[in-house]
Design a protein around this nucleic acid. Structure first.
Lengths: 230, 230
DNA sequence: ACAAAAGTGTTACACATACACCCATGT
DNA sequence: ACATGGGTGTATGTGTAACACTTTTGT
């Protein structure tokens, strides 16, 4: 099928930066590109927006199609829009970038379309002179998204990003702290973090349960969950 | 001329929210729409992006074409992208919104294409049940842009927005304060503002001159200019 | 002298940071 | 007993807000 238009034909796409903590490091969900250009390079999941589709819905759909990962559409937040004329060598593509977070424990089901999806450590993606560069301007998009994530983790209301990382499960405050540390890229004082989180209204609530630390050693931690959005 | 494409034809536009302080109130530069839809309604300046044109350049060009206002392209900052399928009843339009600030003293030259451009008080544009509604989803865009302006005026580095409002001219700290007050929508303590601005590195530098207050009454104020970007 | 605006001093309070110290558990 | 991680207490610093007060001008 071919379309016709009296105005220049733009391709509108979405790119999705999904962050997760794995082994204490910040990772992003990436796709190994098959075809040219940038064949074999890592790229963000994403694709064309449908003619009757909301941008946000397109992000959710493309993410699932390309990686098998389902993210609630309400946890996707817009970051920035990229439209430099030469950012894609083939066509004029304007891409709206979205950010979401994903819980640590859930694995990517590497089936069907998701065969080439993989979690990649963000710091390796962003080194200045990587052996394998990211496709298109995706390095810049990842960089901007991580910056936005740092900002929103500390300031955003409601705490959508924290919700994405925890995925509705229970957690100890040191587990939550390790998420913050991985995103921010530096350590936080355990005691101060504890108080700050507890003092922040509408963030966490205790479940009453306690759970021993992963190593078994040490005092069992009180478990929390995120407060449901009011 | 007609274009053809194998993918859905999207129209990509830019909308520009230019803010200025006039009579102590926050204003936005708006256009009176001529044709349908929304004939006669106020709308943001903006228009179609050229096929080989950067989004930012398109914003600068459309702004000047429709209002006669020239803004340095580097003072335009992106706010958000709007792409709901039904936001324009005629076509599928994805619009990238931009924010800039403009000095108080400069008048809009209401010539040529700018005949229908006018500064409108923001609070009147945003009342919940206005007699004349804004075209399309432009009320939401203005609302988001003002929110972004408040955030960036306080936090952004470099202080692009403050630079836009002052336009490179000299100013007293109470003049600068009235800008902040108009954008934030509430009053600030003169003494505290004075200290805070002076304490902020890379913001203002004294010119050595003094100038009497506008009414003539009162102690003449020390004049400042924004520090040039390092 | 008085009003008005510029600018300084002072105090109180919220909040962040650093770090000492106690608590509860496994080995 | 000791190591380990959870959690509390406490002191110190830093930034904000409120407001009294002094300075410099025009009338």
């Amino acid at each position: 099928m071919a379309y016709e238009s009296e105005y220049p034909p733009f391709y509108v796409t979405v790119d999705i930066v999904v962050l997760a903590i794995r082994d204490g490091r910040l990772h992003a969900l990436m796709i190994r590109r098959g075809g040219e250009p940038y064949a074999g390079a890592w790229a963000l999941p994403g694709g064309f927006v449908g003619l009757d589709e909301d941008l946000r819905d397109a992000a959710e759909r493309e993410l699932e199609e390309e990686t098998g990962v389902r993210i609630g559409t309400e946890t996707l937040t817009q970051v920035h829009t990229y439209g430099t004329p030469d950012r894609d060598p083939r066509h004029r593509v304007v891409s709206v970038a979205w950010l979401a977070a994903f819980p640590e424990t859930v694995e990517v089901t590497a089936g069907t379309d998701a065969a080439h999806a993989e979690w990649r450590p963000v710091d390796e993606l962003l080194v200045d002179d990587p052996g394998d560069r990211l496709a298109f301007d995706h390095a810049g998009i990842v960089r901007d998204a991580v910056e936005a994530a740092q900002e929103r983790l500390m300031n955003a209301e409601p705490p959508l990003l924290a919700a994405g990382f925890t995925g509705g499960r229970e957690f100890s405050l040191s587990q939550l702290r390790s998420v913050y540390e991985a995103v921010l890229g530096h350590e936080l004082d355990p005691g101060n973090f504890q108080r700050k989180v507890k003092a922040t209204q509408r963030l966490v609530e205790p479940t009453g349960r306690r759970e021993p630390a992963p190593g078994g050693r040490g005092r069992p931690a009180e478990m929390f969950r995120l407060k449901p959005r009011a």
